[in-house]
Design a protein around this nucleic acid. Structure first.
Length: 305
DNA sequence: ACCCAGGCATTGG
DNA sequence: CCAATGCATGGG
């Protein structure tokens, strides 16, 4: 087992615990990710080579610095370089939040939220495929149910590695999910329809990887047009893809019940708002609607809204 | 026993 | 083009 250490210098302000904890808020784990005793861990699947990244903070909010310890068989400096870049991406460390914070000052509620969660960056998924499958799994079910299903899928079909007596999982590969029968996915507590969606997306990702992973080079609108042609992917899923997989700052997941609720709670005295009203209202945060959405969800999750 | 929860595709008007 | 409906699971 080879080990290499690297550092990452995120764009300030960067709150490591808040950002790494965004995914792992439930018992410090999210199937593929963990945050225990200030160390964020994730098993990276790099062209079939499994590398465990262990990340800890040695800096501060305004002068952030992260230590990334990598371990795996045949770990070379070149591989470590790619792995470090992946970790930087996973933690959204390049995001510049200041312009959004300035915009948030024009609104007392958002100003309070951004102050409370100062330095929270938006975590990203490793691949577009991962974000797509996770979004399908999360459609129209309670987050708790979604978590159970997600964990089951990852721990059943994800590549794994035992290190120091602990099992780590990477997200299942397209070829693995594409090779399954729909009944196998139904065994993962997916509905017939979702099992078909996931299978179809895995098949597409395997058959035409560029269709999925090539979305990085397209404009937001083109991404939405292209990805919603897949069965199981509507606007809500496309917007989450822009946020979670592509790191776009101005996405807005209209149709999201939680978004409607949190906007109505924070700005309309709990008076229910429909999608058109939410869209109209959220214009004030463009071109940073991704950040506004994520911060509102975080506020809601922690009982602040 | 019900009802609902961070949607989508299909169908019927 | 828009509204209604089935889908599956687990928690309240």
């Amino acid at each position: 087992m080879d080990r290499i250490a690297r550092t990452i210098t995120p764009v300030a302000p960067f709150d490591f615990e808040l950002t790494a904890g965004y995914l792992t808020y439930f018992q410090g784990r999210y199937a593929t990710d963990s945050l225990v005793d200030g160390v964020y861990r994730r098993l990276l699947d790099m062209d079939g080579q499994l590398v465990l990244a262990s990340v800890s903070s040695v800096g501060s909010l305004e002068a952030p610095e992260l230590i990334v310890e990598l371990q795996g068989e045949g770990l070379t400096p070149a591989v470590a370089e790619v792995a470090t870049n992946k970790v930087a991406w996973l933690l959204g460390s390049e995001q510049k939040l200041e312009p959004f914070y300035v915009l948030a000052q024009s609104d007392p509620a958002m100003a309070a939220i951004t102050q409370r969660f100062h330095g929270l960056h938006m975590p990203h998924t490793d691949s577009v495929f991962e974000a797509l499958v996770l979004a399908i799994l999360g459609q129209q079910i309670a987050t708790n149910v979604a978590r159970i299903i997600r964990t089951l899928l990852i721990e059943t079909y994800g590549p794994r590695r035992t290190i120091d007596g602990e099992i780590y999982y990477a997200f299942p590969r397209p070829e693995t999910l594409a090779a399954l029968r729909v009944e196998d996915l139904r065994g993962m507590k997916l509905s017939q329809r979702k099992a078909e969606y996931v299978h179809g997306i895995a098949y597409t990702a395997l058959d035409d990887p560029e269709f999925i992973e090539g979305l990085h080079s397209l404009e937001d609108e083109a991404v939405v047009r292209k990805i919603t042609s897949l069965r199981g992917v509507g606007n809500w899923t496309a917007q989450w893809l822009l946020i979670r997989a592509l790191g776009r700052p101005d996405a807005l997941p209209l149709g999201d019940l939680a978004l409607r609720r949190v906007v109505s709670r924070l700005y309309f005295q709990d008076e229910p708002q429909n999608d058109a009203q939410v869209e109209e209202f959220c214009r004030r945060w463009s071109p940073y609607r991704t950040y506004a959405t994520t911060y509102m969800f975080t506020a809601m999750r922690t009982g602040m809204a």
